[in-house]
């Protein structure tokens, strides 16, 4: 990823601490120089408790969180809430690319099993291979014979597909049921605009009505 070019010339007469804050905010994704400037001046005028709280909160996400040693979700305790919950189905593991994906899946409350976060997807052109994401840890985890089903919930783009195909190649010899989330037409869209692959998969995965 290219470093953002941050020009100092646009702020020749600003106090140095503000300029530093603008530069730091500018590094955040989706925040351009003008946005950064607006946020910096907002924080300058905001009550001190608010800025203090923000600073502490930002510091705490690094200091007080770690990755769950089982599923590699982000957690503030030794094991994450999902892995600790005895009511979750221990025989199912759903594989996702990033912790945010768990939030999306949990929001539906339809899945009661466990997760495994890969922290990325295989992307040959960016030089990300199988050893750069948490695949080895997954295979270790599957060795304990507790898991009966692995659900692949990687993204449906090329990298996610590659990762799913690669995991299929590794997991299929293990005698574990392997499933992939269904692919097809998203809710609330029009068929007219759907692409060939989506329509092909939607036909292949059609179900009795």
């Amino acid at each position: 990823m290219k470093e953002k070019v941050i020009s100092n010339q646009s702020l020749p007469s600003t106090a140095e601490p503000i300029q530093r804050l603008v530069q730091e905010l500018n590094k955040l994704p989706g925040i351009g120089p003008k946005n950064a400037q607006r946020l910096a001046y907002y924080l300058l005028r905001a009550p001190e408790e608010q800025t203090q709280l923000l600073a502490e909160t930002i510091a705490s996400i690094k200091q007080q969180t770690t990755l769950c040693p089982i599923c590699f979700n982000v957690t503030d305790t030794d094991h994450c809430l999902i892995c600790r919950n005895p009511e979750r189905d221990q025989t199912k593991v759903c594989i996702v690319e990033q912790p945010q994906d768990i939030l999306a899946l949990e929001h539906t409350r339809i899945y009661k099993g466990l997760y495994h976060v890969l922290h990325g997807a295989i992307s040959p052109t960016e030089g990300i291979g199988a050893n750069d994401i948490r695949i080895t840890e997954l295979l270790e985890r599957l060795k304990n014979n507790l898991v009966a089903e692995v659900i692949l919930a990687t993204n449906t783009n090329l990298e996610g597909e590659q990762t799913a195909l690669y995991l299929n190649h590794l997991i299929s010899p293990l005698d574990i049921k392997l499933t992939r989330l269904a692919q097809g037409l998203p809710f609330g869209t029009e068929l007219e605009y759907a692409d060939d692959i989506t329509i092909t998969r939607a036909f292949e995965g059609r179900q009795g009505f």
């Binding site: 090329l158 597909e161 190649h169 060939d196």
Partner: peptide, 14 residues
């Protein structure tokens, strides 16, 4: 052309 066979095969994609 979406090259579907290409995307359904690990080594072909590579």
């Amino acid at each position: 052309d979406s090259f579907l066979p290409l995307k359904s095969d690990l080594s072909l994609t590579a």
